[in-house]
Nucleic acid binder design. Sequence first.
DNA 1: CCAGCCCCCTGTCGGC
DNA 2: TGCCGACAGGGGGCTG
Length: 266
Amino acid sequence: MPELPEVETVVRELRDGLQGRRIERMEALWSKTFQNINGRDVDGQRVRAIGRKGKYILLYLDDQDMIIHLRMSGQLLFTGARSQAPHKHDRLIFDLEGGERLVFRDARKFGRIYLVNEADSHLAHVGMDALDPRMTPSHFRNLLRQSRQGIKAFLLSQKGISGLGNIYVDEALFLAGIHPLTRCVSIKNPHELRTVILGVLTKAIDNMGSTISDYRNTRGNEGMNQHYFYVYGRQGLPCKKCGAIIVKARMAGRGTHFCPECQPEA
DNA sequence: CCAGCCCCCTGTCGGC
DNA sequence: TGCCGACAGGGGGCTG
């Protein structure tokens, strides 16, 4: 479900509603969700700071770091009253000081929450965040030079650059006029692709993310960016640039949407 | 190294 | 209506 813009939207809301507050008690309703690496517990700890790397949410607690990945259907929701019974899909409950409650809801049970000593070292294998200022034009160009993968597979891999998923890869490649199977090395204008990626992600953040079915922000609201897609989910409809019919095909293991005219095969 | 599977799960939708 | 397969914003593991 959530890619960088959806995760960033949630992170900004958590900075508002969770940062600086104490977790009085955590309750696990589905044991697989919570992966406790070092065996300690979070009860009584304060959330000192909140960060993000790619699609990972980082909670810096007093003594440990918590890493949250929503995967396909995970949601973090402020639900208010503690008296109400848990929702069918609630996997983890955080009772916060002051009486409010933060719930991790996840229909498909793919989401994971890790308690680790240091988040940053734990995520060292994840590529640089797409919006990191160090993702300069020359750095991005070098990443493309070093990979022999197709561009869609590379951007989805989270190696080198992290945060893009199936929606925003398809949208960015369309706007850059690049066929999804183009080899990274063969991309003529990496600078332009990087610029397009930044534009696609920041516009989606401005629109509070994209909701296809499951994504909600921490208040349970849908995003708005799904109303502005060029290709994602638009198979069979005319291209907004040239009028050709948008095609959906399986590429890099995922449903892939593109315009055969605007994104010719290399 | 890379592409292509499978798996982890549940819900939804289209076809018959 | 009901059943059944395909598919879904992700990612880890395995094989060829």
